[in-house]
Design a protein around this nucleic acid. Structure first.
Length: 276
DNA sequence: CGGACGGCCTGGGAGC
DNA sequence: TGCTCCCAGGCCGTCC
């Protein structure tokens, strides 16, 4: 499932491959995924536009086009943006194909159709609802341990739920949240307000570390994720807890446990991540 | 108003 | 072998 590192890797590959190319044709195979908003026709508004830049905010991928038009996309669980050539067969569940001026194609595929592409005026992006609600970028300078300390202060909700909340911290999903908590030695069901200062400092460092490592490893391809050129990442090979329920802790050998927090499975080490 | 929870959606795996 | 059921979880809308 694409989280901050995966979206960042896709962004980087599209930036290299697609920037400067013109949209010669748009094939909308699944109209519900191509959301034109206030514009009447998805295809028509995009014809002839040029990809100028690829940005990321949290888990959102944002493409700036010429003439003040932007695309806002979210990969959700199974979304893929792949730059490829027309000779490569179009995979099942492909919803939108951009035919580019160099003859290549940019395809949006999403098995579960949770994701989609919105057309937004570039000037309107700062007010665009799904983006304005997002919290701090965890890899920005703004996100300090003091900032995390302020986030957890007086919060009764569980620390796992807090770091997954995109309005507080934008970019962590279930994989990197579990990994960061393990690395920090913090139990996922701890009430946020009970974290002591050393734990806050540990968790802050761990969040940045797991995200940076995820990017360095070109993303986690646990199930569906591939980068902008269809390649799998390597980070799944270095996960400590996610997807390892019942296996042994890499640190102490204890059998890893799991529980549900906010509807999501959390895997953790009952010894290294003490509930106190 | 913060937090919990169901709905969206399909493929894969477990169980029978 | 093939059927059914459940699980995976990011975000949004609804409800308390």
């Amino acid at each position: 499932m694409p989280e901050l590192p995966e979206v960042e890797i896709v962004r980087q590959s599209l930036e290299v491959r697609v920037t400067g190319l013109k949209i010669e044709e748009v094939k909308v195979l699944t109209p519900s995924v191509a959301r034109s908003g206030e514009f009447s026709d998805f295809r028509e508004i995009l014809l002839g536009k040029i990809f100028r830049a690829f940005k990321r905010r949290g888990k959102y991928l944002i493409a700036h086009l010429s003439e003040g038009i932007s695309l806002v996309a979210h990969l959700r669980m199974t979304g893929r943006w792949v730059y490829t050539t027309p000779e490569i067969p179009v995979p099942k569940h492909t919803h939108i194909i951009f035919v580019l001026s160099n003859g290549a194609e940019l395809r949006f595929t999403d098995i579960r159709r949770f994701g989609g592409i919105d057309i937004v005026l570039t000037d309107f992006l700062p007010q665009y609802k799904s983006l304005t609600k997002l919290g701090v970028e965890p890899l920005s300078e703004e996100f300090t341990s003091e900032y995390l300390g302020a986030l957890v202060k007086n919060k009764k909700l569980k620390i796992k739920a807090l770091i997954l909340d995109q309005t507080r911290l934008a970019g962590l999903g279930n994989i990197y949240a579990d990994e960061a908590l393990f690395l920090a030695g913090v139990n996922p069901q701890r009430e946020a307000s009970t974290l002591r200062e050393p734990e806050i400092i540990q968790l802050h460092g761990a969040i940045r570390e797991v995200l940076e490592k995820g990017i360095a490893n070109k993303g986690t391809s646990f199930s569906d994720y591939v980068d902008g050129e269809g390649n799998r990442g390597q980070n799944q090979l270095s996960l400590n807890v996610y997807g390892r329920y019942g296996e042994h802790c890499n640190n102490c050998g204890t059998t890893l446990a799991k529980l549900k927090i906010g509807g999501r499975t959390s895997v953790y080490c009952p010894l290294c991540q003490n509930p106190e």
